[in-house]
Amino acid sequence: MKVDELIALGGAPPNPPSAPPSSEMLDEVTKLYYEVYVPGLSLFFETRWYDFAKNRATAANPTAMLHNNASLVSLFTSFIQTISKIKSTDPVDMVHSGHLELSVIWALARLPLSTPLTQRQQFPESVPAEDDPWEARGRLQVFETLITGEILAGNPLTPPPAAANVHPLRRNELEFWYQLARYLLQDHASASSADISTRERCLSAMRALLDGRENRDVLYSIAVLREYTAQWDAAYSEQSVPSHLEESDSRSKLAVATRFIRDESTSTGGTTNVVRRFADLAYRAFVRPGVNVNRNRVKY
């Protein structure tokens, strides 16, 4: 399933507002975007592109990227109007508002696709700026490919630099994303020993570059789900895998990743709304209902 189809599993899209948004509503959209979603998107994709007030390409008109997108403003308005009416912690209300928020977050995450790009710049020592639009768009493409179970035709990300003057944390960031994209160049349905070995090398490289970053833990865990749910049912493995298995055991990796993604998707799990909603997407894709699992090879 595509991401929009995964979101649709949670309910119908909201009805569009009956009237154009007021200036007060546009101010509320802008306020929520900068206070809640810019930090979450920036941390998840490790980019400053989403902070339009500080993005060099959009700083002259930082609200244009939001206010000129009619469908996004309509969706955001429906979400704000919905949550403003919730006066309790009724599970039904919370599920519905969560569904609308996921729709909003995905629409916001896709903003890099709505901007026309000039020729890709060549950066000194091949290190892109932290708000580089090409890198932001590439990371979005990598995440979408990871969730949908598809394969990349080519690596859209900047190779990690070899220059000694690049800060190690920045190098690790670029290396992690590049290795994730490399993993997605492989046919994940292939059971050949050569293909499995290539994919596992990418996973091992990613694991060594987590650096305690929540977003990388989530992305790595989703990759583990994608890799091993082709062999075992994730929810069953989480419940049945014995605790004495070594960490290197594939079923143990799957059980740990499943538990982590499930926990991150809860209201008390992920540290940002973006992490929680994206973890929920991953759970739908690879655990329950597991619509993007290669079920021809699943074992119970």
Rank of each mutant, 00 (worst) to 15 (best):
4 D>F: 07
4 D>Q: 11
8 A>C: 04
10 G>T: 09
13 P>L: 04
23 S>Q: 10
24 E>W: 03
26 L>D: 05
27 D>F: 12
30 T>W: 05
35 E>I: 13
36 V>Y: 06
38 V>Y: 14
39 P>H: 02
43 L>V: 00
43 L>N: 04
44 F>D: 07
44 F>T: 07
52 F>K: 00
52 F>N: 00
54 K>G: 06
59 A>Y: 07
62 P>K: 05
65 M>I: 13
67 H>R: 14
69 N>Q: 15
69 N>F: 15
70 A>H: 12
70 A>N: 11
73 V>D: 06
75 L>P: 08
76 F>I: 04
77 T>V: 12
84 S>Q: 08
85 K>G: 08
88 S>L: 03
88 S>W: 04
89 T>I: 14
89 T>W: 14
91 P>A: 10
94 M>I: 10
100 L>E: 10
101 E>H: 11
104 V>I: 11
105 I>D: 01
106 W>V: 15
106 W>M: 15
109 A>V: 07
117 L>H: 05
123 F>S: 13
125 E>P: 02
136 A>H: 08
138 G>F: 04
138 G>P: 01
138 G>C: 03
140 L>R: 02
142 V>Q: 12
144 E>F: 07
145 T>Y: 05
147 I>S: 04
147 I>N: 03
147 I>P: 05
149 G>E: 12
151 I>T: 14
152 L>F: 07
158 T>S: 08
162 A>C: 15
162 A>T: 15
166 V>T: 12
167 H>N: 15
167 H>D: 15
168 P>A: 14
173 E>P: 02
175 E>Q: 15
178 Y>S: 05
183 Y>H: 15
189 A>T: 14
191 A>R: 14
192 S>K: 15
193 S>Y: 14
193 S>Q: 15
203 L>E: 07
206 M>A: 00
207 R>M: 00
208 A>L: 06
213 R>G: 02
216 R>W: 06
216 R>H: 08
218 V>Q: 06
221 S>H: 04
221 S>R: 06
231 Q>I: 07
232 W>S: 08
233 D>W: 03
234 A>N: 01
240 S>D: 12
245 L>S: 10
246 E>K: 09
247 E>A: 13
254 L>V: 02
264 E>I: 00
264 E>N: 00
265 S>K: 02
267 S>K: 10
269 G>I: 03
276 R>Q: 13
276 R>A: 06
278 F>W: 09
278 F>Y: 12
279 A>N: 00
282 A>G: 06
283 Y>P: 01
285 A>D: 01
288 R>S: 13
288 R>H: 08
289 P>D: 03
290 G>P: 02
291 V>P: 00
292 N>K: 03
292 N>V: 03
296 N>F: 06
298 V>G: 06
299 K>S: 11
